Simulated assay, not measured.
Amino acid sequence: MRDEYDFSKARRGAALASPGKTRITIMLDDDVISFFRAQAEQQGTGYQTMVNAALRAAMAPAKAEKPDAKPVTAATLRRILREELRAG
């Protein structure tokens, strides 16, 4: 080991950036953190990974909706109603 190291160009933070990840600060209730830490310990995984999975599960219903779907116009609605009234 050296007697002295030069840290003049050093920066704080992770040595390598994680692609696809963003570091944020978030305030969560203590019981939420305790729950995820206990579950993570039982499953042998990280609690942040479990929180991420829970957030992804919460996103699933929103993703199931078709965000690219065009809004129904009045003309389309009239056409559908006419077809249904004729069929019934």
Rank of each mutant, 00 (worst) to 15 (best):
L85Y: 09
I24D: 12
S8K: 00
G20C: 02
R56Q: 08
T25W: 15
A38C: 06
A40F: 01
T76R: 10
F35Q: 15
P61F: 02
E83F: 02
K63H: 12
E4R: 03
R37M: 13
G88F: 04
A69K: 07
F7S: 04
Y47S: 11
A14H: 12
R79V: 03
T22V: 15
S18V: 13
A87C: 04
A58D: 09
K63L: 12
A40H: 01
R86L: 10
L55G: 14
A87D: 11
M27K: 11
D68P: 01
D31S: 14
K63P: 00
G88C: 06
R11V: 07
P67Q: 08
M1S: 00
D29T: 11
A10Q: 04
A54P: 03
A60R: 13
Y5M: 01
F36H: 05
A57F: 10
P71Q: 07
D68K: 09
M59F: 08
A87V: 07
S8I: 00
K66W: 08
V51P: 02
G13D: 02
A15Q: 14
R37L: 05
T73E: 02
I24V: 15
S34I: 09
V72K: 05
Q42M: 13
I80C: 07
R11F: 02
A57T: 08
A53Y: 09
D29A: 12
A15D: 11
Q43H: 14
E4H: 05
A14P: 13
R56N: 11
T73W: 01
D3I: 01
K21M: 15
Y47F: 15
D31C: 11
A10F: 00
T49V: 06
I33P: 03
A75P: 00
I80Y: 09
R23H: 13
P19Q: 13
A54H: 08
R2S: 00
A10V: 02
D29F: 08
R12S: 10
R12Y: 08
R86D: 11
T49I: 06
R11D: 02
A15I: 04
Q43P: 03
A74C: 01
E84M: 06
D3S: 00
A38H: 14
A87I: 03
R82L: 10
Q39T: 12
L81D: 12
S34W: 06
P67Y: 07
A54W: 08
A10Y: 02
R12W: 05
T73N: 02
R79C: 05
T22H: 15
Y47H: 14
A69M: 05
P71Y: 03
D68N: 06
I33F: 03
L77A: 13
R11L: 04
S18K: 15
I33R: 14
E4T: 08
T73H: 01
A54G: 06
I33S: 06
T73V: 01
P19L: 10
P71W: 04
I26T: 10
K66M: 08
P71G: 03
Q39K: 15
K66T: 07
